[in-house]
Computed example of a mutant assay.
Amino acid sequence: MSSRSLSGHASAADAGYRGRFAPSPTGDLHAGSLLAAFASWLLARQAGGAWLVRIEDLDPPREVPGAADRQLQALAGFGLLSDEAVVRQSRRHALYEAALTDLLDRGLAFACHCSRSDLAATGGIHRRCVSARAGGAPQPAIRLRVADGATVDFDDALLGKQSQDVAATVGDFVLRRADGYWAYQLAVVVDDADQAITDVVRGADLLDSTARQILLQRALGLATPRYAHLPLLVDAQGRKLSKSDAAHPLDPSDPLPALRAVWRALGQDEQALIAVETVTQLLDTARVSFSPAQIPQAAAGLAAMHNDHRTNAV
């Protein structure tokens, strides 16, 4: 990891640093979620900036009833409170519709009836419509038109220089799905711009989405925030924790063990927090002791969360 890039990340205080944590309500808060929330909060606090919470509830078939409220309650138990009113994507359809209409009106997006099976021969990469259906049911998806050779280069504050040929590796990507639901890529770009987010700190599983989001920001004439992609917590089989049976919900009534554990997974000095006795003390101490340069690039095994025998919350 580059201390140069992370020091640049922290200096964003002069530019009004605004970070965010944006969970999807597909389950309760688990250790991997807490790591992302805590790290993004620490970077925002170290920069003297704001930290926001946004609920990304745009996929009803995958949502768990009550999960969003339980996530917010858990964050509160860990002392991680949004500096502004919590935003829920499900209440922001008009913003997404306006952005999509703009892209369609300028010929930068188009209707597409291609299904996954239609695109099987190209590995799911869309470069031209191949579906026999045209203009009929079912409702088409809307895709962003990606120019041939469209390559995006960016500097990740944790992982360094990144480059992706979006046309070759992704193709024309979906902005509104055929089932009528908004695609993640459009919603997150519109929301980050609307909330004036300057720094996106999130798990490395979303690194592959970044080039698409930058292309979309450019198409909409929006500013591009800085990005930092955190190491993932994985189980013994190397699976992302959110997709693992080991992803037990956290217990916000006993927050210190879990906070110490994610602090350790972020590569930080365990001794810095050894004497703290309350969440407030831990957060205050973590804020001044946090060293972004110590965050590892590689995924952390779930065992890192269990080194402390007191950690019964993960």
Rank of each mutant, 00 (worst) to 15 (best):
S33E: 02
A12L: 15
R70W: 05
L259G: 02
Q46E: 10
L250D: 00
L273S: 05
A47G: 15
D153H: 14
P225R: 03
L35K: 09
D14R: 15
D199C: 05
T169Y: 10
A219P: 00
L250Y: 03
D148M: 11
L42W: 05
D192C: 12
A196M: 10
P60V: 12
A168V: 01
Q73T: 14
V53D: 00
A47Y: 06
G160Q: 06
D102T: 15
Y96T: 10
R91A: 15
L206D: 06
L216P: 00
R145A: 14
V234F: 01
H306E: 13
E270C: 13
D118C: 11
D165H: 04
H306T: 14
Q162T: 03
A141R: 08
A94E: 15
S5A: 15
R116F: 08
Y17I: 07
S40M: 07
A304H: 14
G123N: 04
A299C: 14
A76R: 13
L144F: 06
L95P: 01
A261N: 05
R116E: 06
L175N: 00
L259Q: 01
S117N: 12
V86K: 05
L42G: 04
G160V: 10
G77H: 02
I55K: 04
Q162V: 04
Q71E: 12
A223G: 03
Y17L: 15
A183M: 12
L273R: 06
V166M: 00
W263A: 04
R260M: 08
H9C: 13
L215T: 02
V200R: 02
G19I: 03
Q89Y: 04
D269F: 02
L216D: 02
W51I: 03
R176I: 07
G136Q: 14
P231L: 07
P296V: 06
G8E: 15
P138F: 11
N307K: 09
A36W: 01
T224G: 04
V200I: 15
D199K: 03
G203M: 07
S82Y: 08
S90E: 07
I197S: 00
P231A: 10
L6T: 09
D245T: 12
T26M: 11
A141I: 09
A193F: 12
D179I: 05
V234H: 02
L158K: 00
A272Y: 07
A121H: 13
A193K: 01
S40Q: 04
S242H: 12
D83L: 09
R127L: 10
V200C: 09
R20G: 02
D105P: 04
R54D: 10
A286I: 07
H93A: 15
R226G: 15
P65I: 05
Q73C: 12
T169P: 01
L259F: 06
K161W: 10
D284S: 14
